[in-house]
Simulated assay, not measured.
Amino acid sequence: MEARVLKPVLAVYTLLFILFLYGPFFVLAILSFQQGPEGGPQFPIIEWSTYWYRHIFGLVPPSRIAPLPLGEAMFRSLTLAFMTMIISTVLGVMSAQAFRRKFKGSGFVFYLIVLGMMVPGVLTGLGVSLLANNILGIERHWWSTAFVTHVVYTFPFAFLVMLAILNRFDASVEEAAWSLGVPPARTFRKVTFPLIFPGVLSAMLFAFTLSYDEFSRTLFASGRDQTLPLAIYGTFSVEIHPNVFAFGVLTTVFSFALLAVYAILMGLSVRRAKKVAMQEDIV
């Protein structure tokens, strides 16, 4: 009896959760197809049009609504996210590898790393800004101070992902390589890394997406150069136009494309790991 009641309740809860999660995306998608160039956020749609998508790419005549500042801002965001992804993933793999063995002060180091994801972003960005301006006397830039704040924020996520992966890792395969005289560096490159590569992909995805969307830390630490979230905020903080909705839809599609690439790479990695395991069983 309890199972019969529980299943419909869970089904309704799951449906409501999905609607709450993806509802804003569907609203943005609908409002982005309004008539231009004077159409505003209105519903129901009077006339459907792709004007605002063409407006983003500069394919329509000039109007009173300025195009979104996408060029340099998007380049900064993508470059910053890529830099953060590389450094955070490398640090995460190295740190998680170190935690495979107990060492003195490991508990303190663990909480020190995780602290980066627990401190509010506003405080972190403000602290880095004050440190750079008042103590170090250096100018804030997206590639320096903002980059540091992004690494501090994303590094704990990469570390926790890799820590979970390495905690389930079978160390006997490494010991077998060492017994054959293979150096530790070559063992990691040829044995360990291919087996933990799915976790590395997850850490890279976490670091990239968190950095690409980061606002509060970047607001204080980036200086006069704006990343994409700051540029978009500066645009719609004055007046909201449907070009922002269209860009939100394109950004969401870009995120889904990243997930698709991640799924493909993950599938290839898992297939490769299974192939290696089958070869080991045969031997």
Rank of each mutant, 00 (worst) to 15 (best):
A3P: 06
V5Q: 13
L16Q: 11
G23P: 04
F26D: 08
L28N: 03
S32T: 04
G36Y: 00
I46N: 15
T50E: 06
Y51L: 05
R54I: 04
L59G: 01
L59A: 12
R64L: 10
E72N: 13
A73P: 06
M74Y: 01
S77D: 03
F82R: 02
F82G: 05
M83S: 13
L91N: 05
G92Y: 01
A96L: 04
A98Q: 07
F99R: 02
R101A: 02
F103P: 00
V109W: 04
L112H: 12
P120H: 10
V128C: 11
N134T: 10
I135C: 07
W142Q: 01
A146L: 14
T149M: 09
F155K: 02
A164V: 09
I165L: 08
R168E: 07
V173I: 15
W178V: 01
S179I: 09
R186W: 11
T187M: 05
T192C: 07
F193V: 09
I196N: 07
F197Q: 10
L205R: 03
L205E: 03
F206Y: 10
A207G: 01
F220A: 10
G234M: 05
S237L: 01
H241T: 09
N243W: 02
F254P: 04
L259V: 15
L259Q: 09
V261F: 12
M266H: 15
S269F: 04
K275R: 12
D281F: 15
